[in-house]
Every structure is written in structure tokens, then in C-alpha cells.
């Protein structure tokens, strides 16, 4: 495997009962890139993300993150690899019993062994990096708006300065202005922190404005992967409808 490949998926097969989600899926993610995963509903975008981060055990195939198979590692080593990536779940998944700052400070206290005061200070910086005012830290997740929840969840995902950031539909449910701000935030953070970003999205604007490469999931595998302009020329009905439909054309124009 190439040194620059941080995620390597080979021959992945996922099945739920009789329903086949992935069959012989291959995908490489390179260090420092923002890769967008697109596909129709039910093509297994989120399942692919959950499989890569080790939340779902595939029926067959191999998933290597930093060259390691997460599901084959003993718990302790697995935890070490897991600290090298951050995950932003679709609905934020902030712990509702903790304040926003405590949510971000939790991994710092648990894994980086900081004391509570330092962790809270550093959590404030992460929140600021994600574009949240500091008073937001004292609120509980229920008091935040949808866009702020996403930002707070991003701050938590960034808490341990991960090398890979997994984002599941980060702009879903945000208004276009917040979504655009979130897109540029991701690009800024990638440039500043040298992140690799694995982005599952439906949002064409996000794809055009942030992604270096796009992978299209269709027919249980990765149908096409590459820069968005190349992928958009793929001869496939779904790809054509997606990228060259009215919304796709509007997004491409910008």
C-alpha cells in the first residue's frame, strides 16, 4: 500500500438479510484530500462510513485505516487508532447530559489526560475553531440550533487533533448560508490542520466547493471515483441525472 493512502477498502461486502448493500467495493482515500461520497438513497453511503470506522462488521472484504484492520485489533490498540480519527455524526450525537464544552473536553480528559481546567480551556479553542462563541460552551446541546449543534459536534470530532475527519451529511438540515459557512470551515481546517476528510453528502454545493475527489456509490460498489468534472462525465444514468440535472448544473456553475 502507498504511504499516502490512509484508508484502504478492498472487496467489501455488506449484506443485511437478503438486501445487498455493498459487493466487492474498493476505495482508497489519500492523505490530505477531501473525498466526497455520493449515491442515491439506500446505496450504503452511511454504511460504508460506519464500516470504515469499525461500527459495522462487513460480511467479507478488508478495511484498513492507517494500514490497520480495526476489527482485528485488540481493544487497546483499536482505541489508539480510533483517537486518530474524528467522526461527525449526522445528528451531531452530542451527549445530552453534558454541556457543549464538556462534550468537547471529554476526549481531552479521558485520552489526553488533561486536567479539567486545561481541558475546558482547550475545548473553548476547539469551539472557537469550529466557529462557535465561547458562551455556547456553557449551554446544553438541547439549547443549540441545528447549525450550532453541527459545529459543536465538529469541535468534539476535532478535540484530539485527528488526522482523518469523517463527516456524515454535515450540511443536511442547515440553511444555505450556514451550509456554505460550514463548507468553507472544512476547507480552512483541512488546510490548517492537514486533515484528510471523508465526506458523505447529498449536497451538490458542498461537493463542488470542497471536494478534491468524488466517489459515486451505485450498484453495490464504487461506480466512479475522481475529480468531480471527470466523475460527472461518467456514462451512467444515475450519475448523469445527479450531476447534470437542474440542481447539479446550478451547483456546477458557481
Amino acid at each position: 500500500m502507498n504511504d499516502d493512502t490512509v484508508i484502504e477498502v478492498r472487496g467489501l461486502t455488506n449484506r443485511f438479510g437478503a438486501q445487498v448493500v455493498h459487493e466487492g467495493l474498493d476505495l482508497d482515500v489519500r492523505r490530505g484530500e477531501i473525498i466526497g461520497i455520493v449515491g442515491g438513497s439506500g446505496t450504503g453511503k452511511s454504511v460504508l462510513l460506519r464500516t470504515i470506522i469499525g461500527l459495522n462488521r462487513p460480511q467479507a472484504g478488508e478495511v484498513r485505516v492507517f494500514g490497520q484492520d480495526l476489527l482485528a485489533l485488540p481493544d487497546e490498540k483499536r482505541s489508539l487508532v480510533e483517537r486518530r480519527f474524528g467522526v461527525l455524526f449526522q445528528s451531531g450525537a452530542l451527549f445530552s447530559s453534558l454541556t457543549v464544552a464538556e462534550n468537547v473536553a471529554l476526549p481531552l480528559v479521558e485520552h489526553a489526560k488533561l486536567d479539567r481546567v486545561d481541558a475546558t480551556r482547550l475545548a473553548g479553542v476547539k469551539l472557537a475553531l469550529a466557529g462557535l462563541p465561547v458562551d455556547a460552551g456553557r449551554k446544553s446541546p438541547a439549547q443549540l440550533s441545528g447549525g450550532m449543534v453541527k459545529r459543536a459536534a465538529l469541535a468534539r470530532a476535532l478535540a484530539l487533533d485527528p488526522e482523518i475527519l469523517f463527516l456524515d451529511e454535515p450540511t443536511a438540515g442547515l440553511d444555505p448560508i450556514s451550509a456554505a459557512a460550514f463548507d468553507s470551515l472544512i476547507v480552512t481546517l483541512r488546510d490548517a490542520l492537514g486533515l484528510t476528510v471523508f465526506l458523505v453528502t447529498h449536497d451538490l454545493d458542498t461537493l463542488y466547493s470542497t471536494c478534491d475527489r468524488v466517489a459515486v456509490l451505485s450498484q453495490h460498489r464504487v461506480l466512479a471515483v475522481g475529480p468531480i468534472d471527470e466523475v460527472a462525465r461518467t456514462d451512467d444514468a444515475w450519475v448523469q441525472a445527479y450531476f447534470n440535472g437542474p440542481r447539479g448544473r446550478a451547483a456546477a456553475k458557481e
Binding site: V125, T188, L193
Partner: peptide, 24 residues
């Protein structure tokens, strides 16, 4: 460049959001 971007991003973040914080 990456280091400069990091310093700038963190510096900006602190300037924008971390001012005027009082301890309860």
C-alpha cells in the same frame, strides 16, 4: 504554509470568540 495557516486559524478563532470571557 501549513504552519502559518494553523497559527492564523487558531489566532483568528481566539480573537473572534475567546475575548471577554469571564469566569463564573
Amino acid at each position: 504554509a501549513a504552519r502559518r495557516a494553523l497559527l492564523k486559524t487558531v489566532g483568528d478563532a481566539i480573537d473572534t470568540y475567546c475575548t471577554g470571557v469571564r469566569r463564573p
